[in-house]
């Protein structure tokens, strides 16, 4: 055995497995996206088995893009959710990382508390938030609004100022089960789960910040904001880019949260739409899937380039 054979042999199982895992299902999706293929059809039973005879060309893509009105809504909603989550997690993550970076009493415990949401399984996250916290009647959301209304009501009975408080309207709790608000609910719960991830990465990166440079800046009279703006932020540029892209890839395939929060109320993203199509129209599901792959790849190329660069150093 030559010296090159052994290392190749050791890599082979991993490479082969991943190759099969990637090519076989994706190849099938690609094929299905070009044929007419439905699970149930009394009128055209020949469409119920995948066959090259049912070739449809770009027909499924045209159907998804132009006739199925949900596609563009799902794309828009996916991007809305992903964009909002990224903006919130990066903003909050930066603020919290800078805040927690210094030593203070009980920092270790505070850190552990802060990171915990990241390990909660997505299904529990969604069930917990939508039922126990955001529910407009029984959740904390409903109880808090009820409490505020009760306080206002009791203030209205006060002798002199009561007149002033009687002008206050009774507030209504927001219901997070409508189409638009359930997208908000998803954003809230995913932000809660992923802000710790951003914090953790920014904190790790802050540890390697050049302290001498910082001290020099303080001696030069730089205030906290300009230190952050001119030293810390450039230092964090790469971690921020990575946090943005990793989240983009993960959240474009968000599924459990959408399924739990918004089944049947119209709040859908691409994976959810694919799931809906897949209950009968496999051709359309596959065409949508291929478009989701293209969308994810646009982000992935940039991410892989950054990661590849840092690989060998």
């Amino acid at each position: 055995m030559t010296s090159r054979t052994l290392p190749r042999l050791l890599q082979t199982p991993a490479v082969l497995l991943l190759l099969v895992w990637m090519l076989v299902p994706l190849g099938m999706t690609l094929f299905f996206s070009f044929i007419r293929y439905v699970l149930n059809s009394l009128r055209r039973p020949e469409w119920t088995s995948p066959s090259i005879d049912n070739w449809r060309g770009w027909g499924n893509y045209e159907y998804v893009l132009y006739s199925a009105k949900d596609f563009w809504f799902a794309v828009q909603n996916s991007l809305f959710i992903v964009g909002s989550v990224i903006a919130l997690t990066v903003g909050l993550g930066l603020a919290i990382a800078v805040l927690v970076n210094r030593n203070f009493m009980g920092r270790g415990i505070a850190r552990v508390m802060l990171i915990s949401p990241f390990f909660v399984m997505p299904a529990v996250n969604a069930v917990l938030w939508i039922n126990m916290i955001l529910d407009p009647v029984l959740g904390l959301n409903g109880l808090a609004v009820e409490g505020i209304n009760a306080i206002v009501a009791s203030l209205q009975t006060m002798p002199i100022f009561g007149g002033f408080f009687s002008l206050w309207p009774e507030i209504e709790p927001v219901s997070f089960r409508a189409t638009q608000t359930s997208a908000m609910a998803v954003i809230i719960m995913v932000t809660w789960q992923w802000t710790p991830f951003a914090v953790l990465i920014f904190m790790t990166s802050l540890q390697s910040e050049d302290q001498q440079q910082k001290e020099a800046a303080i001696l030069d009279g730089a205030n906290a904001w300009s230190q952050f703006r001119n030293l810390t932020l450039p230092h964090l540029a790469r971690p921020i880019a990575i946090v943005v892209m990793i989240q983009a890839i993960f959240h474009l395939s968000l599924y459990a949260e959408i399924e739990i929060v918004s089944r049947g109320n119209g709040n859908k993203n691409l994976p959810y739409l694919i799931g809906e199509f897949a209950s009968n129209n496999i051709g359309a599901a596959s065409a949508t899937g291929i478009m989701a792959v293209v969308l994810a790849n646009i982000v992935a190329i940039f991410l892989l380039r950054i990661i590849g660069k840092s690989l060998m150093d």
């Binding site: 099938m28 395939s253 596959s286 994810a296």
Partner: peptide
């Protein structure tokens, strides 16, 4: 890059 393929795309296959 195999990790970055959306799972839903290969759901039916």
């Amino acid at each position: 890059s195999t990790k970055m393929l959306p799972a839903a795309a290969v759901l039916y296959p």
